[in-house]
Amino acid sequence: MASIIKTEDLTKVYNGRVKALDKLNIEIEKGEIYGLLGPNGAGKTTTINLLVTRIYPTSGTAIVNGFDIRKNSLDIRRTIGVVPQDLTTDEDLTGIENLKLVSRFYDVPQAEAEERINRLISMVNLDDAKDRLVRQYSGGMRKRLELIAGLVNDPEILFLDEPTLGLDVTTRNHMWQYVKEIQEKLDVTIILTSHYLEEVDALSDRISIIDHGKVMATGTSEELKSNLRGDVIQVTVKSENDVEKVMAFPESVDSKLTEPNTVRLKVSNSDEELPKLISYINANSIQITKLSVQKPSLDDVFLEITGKDIRKEDPADYRQVMFNMRRLRR
C-alpha cells in the first residue's frame, strides 16, 4: 500500500523553548484508520495542526497526499477534511447553511454540493434538524454536524481530533459507528487522536503511541499488546503443596503468589505458553481448580510505554474543554 502521509523529522518548537514535536516520523497508508495516542502535551494536536497546515513546522516536513506542508498548504487544505477538537460551526446559522458555507470555501459546484450535503446529513441522521439553527442542537447533534462539516469537500484524508470529547458513552458509541461507516462508504483515510483508549482501540487499524513529541511505538493494537510480552495466567490449585510446583513453571517470566492458593504467572505469549503449562501441570500431577488468561489491555501498553496512566489524564486545555462541554450540554 502506498503511504498517503509521510513525515520527515517533523519538528515544532513553540516560542523557541517548548519542543512540542521532536523529529517525528510516521507513515500513514491510504485507506486506513490511524490512531494517535499519547498523554497530554505529547504532541498529538500539534501533529494534526502541522499536517492540516494550521501551523508551520520549525524544521523537517511532511508530505500529505503528495504535497509538501511547507510549500503547498492551499493544495493540501483542498484535499483534506478536518474535524477539530473545538466546535467550529456557527450557532447563528442552520445546519445546512453551515455546510453550504463550508462547501463554498472549497468551490464545490452548487448542485454537487447540495447532493453531497443531503447525503451526509442523512448519513448522520440529521435530516429533521438540518433547517434548525445550530444553537438549538443537542451536544450529540452538534458533534455529528462537525463530523460531516469535515466531509463536505469529499476529502481524501479526514483528520479527527478528539471527536468524542465531552460526549456521554451512548453518544460516543454512535459516533464510532458513524466514523466506521464514513470510512467504509467514502473510502477516506482517517487520522484520529483520542483520549479514550477504547476509542482508538475500537476504530484504528494502526496506532502510534507518542510521547514527548516522539513516536514510542507503532503497530496494530494486537501487535502493541503482544510486544508488551506480558500476558498473565492465573492458576488456582487445590492444595498448598502444589503452589511451589506451579511457581517453578520454567517458561514464566515472573511468578507471584497473589492469594493463598493462586499463582500469577507472567508469560511472554499466553497463546504459546498455555499448552505448555497444561502439559506441565499434567506431567507433575498438579490438581487445579481454576485457570484463567489475561491479555494486556491497551491501557497496559500505554502505561508501559509512557509511564503514565491515561485514565488519570485530564484533557489538554481544560478551560476550553469545559467551555465546549457547557455548549454541548445546553
Partner: peptide
Amino acid sequence: RLGVLGRFLIAPI
C-alpha cells in the same frame, strides 16, 4: 472565541 474561526483557518481560502 466561539471556535468558528478555526473552521475558516483550515479552509483553502
